[in-house]
Structures are given as C-alpha cells and as structure tokens.
C-alpha cells in the first residue's frame, strides 16, 4: 500500500540512540516530517499544539511513561483519533494487554528490524484508511 508520507510524526523515547534509529528508519521509508521528544511529559505539549498525525512512543520513561501518554492522547478530544505505535522493551503479556486497553494501534518489542517497523506502520495506516 502507499503510505501517507506527508504525515507529521512524533517519536518519543528517553534514549537518544533509539530516537535516532527510529527517525532514520522512518526517513528511509519515505517520511520527511519527523519530530523527536525525550519523554511523555515533553511530548504531550508538542502533540497538543502541533498537527501530528502519528505517534510512536516508548513505554519506560522517567517523567511520564508511554502508557500514560497514550491515555492522555486518547482522553484529548482533538488527539484521540491519532494512530499510536508503542515501541518498547516491555514484553510481558499483561503489559501488552494494558497497552491495547489504553488504545495503542500496535506494539513492537525491542529490538526490532526496519522491516518490522515498516510492516507495523503499513498495518496501522491500512487500518486507519479502512475506518
């Protein structure tokens, strides 16, 4: 499928290396408008004042965890429809269920490959387009 490559994306992770890895892979897929945030607490204001169309977030972050960021986005009338991909080292079954219940569109366990990230993004946007 053809991805909406003009989508503005926010990548949230407390580790710089992971932010840059995800950004590079997104860039290779063809996305050009990619912003970065190092915590849920810094990401939420950006989301509220920006026109982002896709959120990729880590779970474990020091100030505001990714799961709380997801809940905050889903609770915001303007942001609640935003597709969200969680990319995290947390792989326990109950955590994946918790993330799904909070409203993530999909979930990737670190470490991951560029192909996995691309496939998940395609799946998410296919689902969004089908609604």
């Amino acid at each position: 499928m053809s991805l909406p490559l003009d989508t503005k994306i926010l990548v949230v992770d407390d580790f710089e290396s992971m932010r840059r890895i995800v950004k590079q892979v997104l860039h290779d897929i063809g996305f050009k408008d990619i912003s970065l945030a190092d915590d849920g607490a810094t990401a939420l204001p950006l989301l509220k004042k920006g026109d982002f169309g896709f959120l990729i977030t880590d779970w474990n972050m020091p100030q505001m965890e990714g799961i709380d960021l997801v809940k905050a986005v889903r609770a915001d009338p303007r942001l609640k429809g935003m597709p969200i991909l969680m990319v995290t080292a947390e792989a326990k079954r109950e955590q994946i269920i918790q993330a799904a219940q909070a409203g993530v569109n999909d979930y990737i366990v670190k470490p991951f490959t560029p192909d996995t990230l691309k496939a998940k993004i395609e799946k998410i946007f296919k689902g969004v387009a089908g609604k």
């Binding site: 580790f15 890895i21 590079q24 470490p111 490959t113």
Partner: peptide
C-alpha cells in the same frame, strides 16, 4: 550500515 544502525539499539536496552 543499516545493521550497524539498528545494533545501536543495544544502548537503550542495556541502559534500561
């Protein structure tokens, strides 16, 4: 080079 890029993810996992 892409493999080297992805391998830097170790820093996130080991750091956590």
């Amino acid at each position: 080079l892409m493999d080297i890029l992805m391998a830097q993810g170790f820093q996130d996992l080991s750091g956590q």
